[in-house]
Amino acid sequence: MNEYVLSIATLIAIYAILSVSLSLLVGHTGIFSMAHAALFGVGAYTYAVLTVQFGWAPGPALVVALLLAALAGAVMAVPSLRVSGDYFLVASFALQVVAGSVFENWTSVTGGTGGIPGIERPAMGPLDFGDSGAFLGLAVVVALLVAAVSLWLVRSPYGRMLHVVRDDEVVAATLGKPVRFAKVSVTVLAGAFAGLAGVLYAQYLLYLSPGTFEVATSVSIITMVVLGGMTSVVGAVIGAAVIVLIPQGLRQLDIASSAAGPLEQVFFGLLLILLMFVRPQGLLGGSRRRPTRSTDAVGDAAEGKAVHAA
């Protein structure tokens, strides 16, 4: 395999981690977050700042990066306990913008728009991850682990609890399910996973810039999840592969580079619209339609109704 193929495959593995972790929130718990790129960024920036500016070893930096990303997830959980549906959407959007603003403007730490160059890949005993093949192996192993843990979780009693919370929060509370614990724990977990993807991304690109962790990236990750089918772990991985590969395919066409970026976005947008008309449950969403859930995820959620009535 040449370097280009290795590089694309690694990127797919990293985005697969992101889309699997977001599907835990969106698909399984009904928390529709526009802030996943922010959690991704917290992991990436923490790792980069600690290793490059403070000269930490990769191990401790990884641990702190995961902890901070999990903490960011917990912060995100706070508005989700109070509001849902459209309201949470706006709250998560606000969080995303705040995080993006910090990445871009806290120049003394994040390097501002200049970003952080000079990140190094770790070596583990005989394994030197500076080699693209070895690094792809690492990324794939991590992605498989995240997918396996997620798959195990959503099929466990914990996963069933998440589903009850998603389908009807009031019923979940009435049944004595710990709604608060469910929401906080799943956002913390999704935050840690996204942070892990961030650390891998920093090691993959060896350079960070704030543009990677903007709203547009959150939208891309959402598209991956929706494309794959919201609740399907395998679907989330396939969604990530498709969304990473489309720009590569477009790059083969002869398009001026200034127009290629916007055209790529136009393509994503059209894909999203088409998907919602033709197959709103996503590629692997199963044939049974669940209109009640898709309505409940945003809009008619209990909170929204309460506010409307008030």
């Binding site: 459209d86 136009v266 709103p280």
Partner: peptide, 29 residues
């Protein structure tokens, strides 16, 4: 048309998001 197909809430938001991305970028091209 989407509502007539039973799409609401989240599905409608995603279509709207798709439309935003398309329109914003068509001008940018």
């Amino acid at each position: 048309p989407l509502e007539r197909r039973g799409g609401a809430g989240f599905v409608l938001f995603l279509v709207s998001l798709g439309a935003l991305i398309v329109i914003d970028n068509v001008f940018t091209v």
